[in-house]
Design a protein around this nucleic acid. Sequence first.
DNA 1: GGTGCCATGTAACGCGTTACATGATTAT
DNA 2: ATAATCATGTAACGCGTTACATGGCACC
Lengths: 179, 179
Amino acid sequence: MSLRFGILGLLAEKPAHGYEVKTRYEDMLGGTREINIGQVYTTLQRLERDGLIEAEGDRGDRGKQDYRITDGGREALHTWLANPNEEPQQLNEEIYVKILLGSRLGNSSLDSLLSGQRRIYLQKIRDLSELEQRARRQSRVDLALLARGAIIHAEAELKWLDFAEAEMRNRQSAAAQNN
Amino acid sequence: MSLRFGILGLLAEKPAHGYEVKTRYEDMLGGTREINIGQVYTTLQRLERDGLIEAEGDRGDRGKQDYRITDGGREALHTWLANPNEEPQQLNEEIYVKILLGSRLGNSSLDSLLSGQRRIYLQKIRDLSELEQRARRQSRVDLALLARGAIIHAEAELKWLDFAEAEMRNRQSAAAQNN
DNA sequence: GGTGCCATGTAACGCGTTACATGATTAT
DNA sequence: ATAATCATGTAACGCGTTACATGGCACC
């Protein structure tokens, strides 16, 4: 997902310079994602070029360059915020294609792929639950909500892995019947 | 997700030219995703450059250029297939950031955003269920599995929307108490 | 004096999207 | 004829990643 509107939203709260955008973004996501600082600067440049933000005054301490959102920026942000996402489905996530192809190609390591993937999801759920608990203790409701979303997703992945494994077993026993 | 290994996998089944890769890929995904033909050609070029595939003979009918997988390509594919994906979580999906920011900025249209998003997921689930049924009728087990995965995901999104809405209502009533 | 963090950028490359350009064959 | 489909590519741009380069300031 693009940083474009995320950064614009942060600047709508209050002006900031590039490095500060990075730290505030990471804080918003509870440290679950590292924001690429180089990308922040290029995104700021594009936002400025498009008139959604503007440089604020001269450079302050240590060459810091603050940016503030413009009226056009607020409008663009509002439009973005008001509209749902039409294409939320990723039918093309890597793990799907991997399992599809593994099954088509008769790959023998499908079992270990599935169990490895399961292990990763379980670990992820543990980490995220910890994050959610911490967020609740700190009354960071938004962050807790974010963590809950990621947990629900990971649980969905696990559910699908179960489904996929059952399907594979069915196919194997059907194949055995024919021999 | 990158087309790179998906294309490599299809070429492992049998050699093909660019346009055929596109149609076979789309068929593998049950017509749920349109593959960008331009991207197919650039990806084929990169795969050839990296020695994972090679052009097969001269151009045949209508300038068709077949590609076949190399030994190195098979090895790379096998490695990719055997390893689970470490980073399956997208804590950064657009809708999360949108709702996070909408809530932080006190955006008034959050309700309609949530209900709009809900509508989209419900429609998606209907479409995908139809796809799954069709796949089962045609005994396309892989495609049915893919559709089921997407359905499970969409259901997870719905579950999270419920969660988010409840959270918002809690906050509103808490705010009302303080007034 | 070095290590680490704050702060700014640029360059190269991968990959996705849109658009453009060309030409052959097939169906109406 | 002409429209659709088959078939090949290129160019420009957005955005993500990695790596490189520069300099100030704080702490030890």
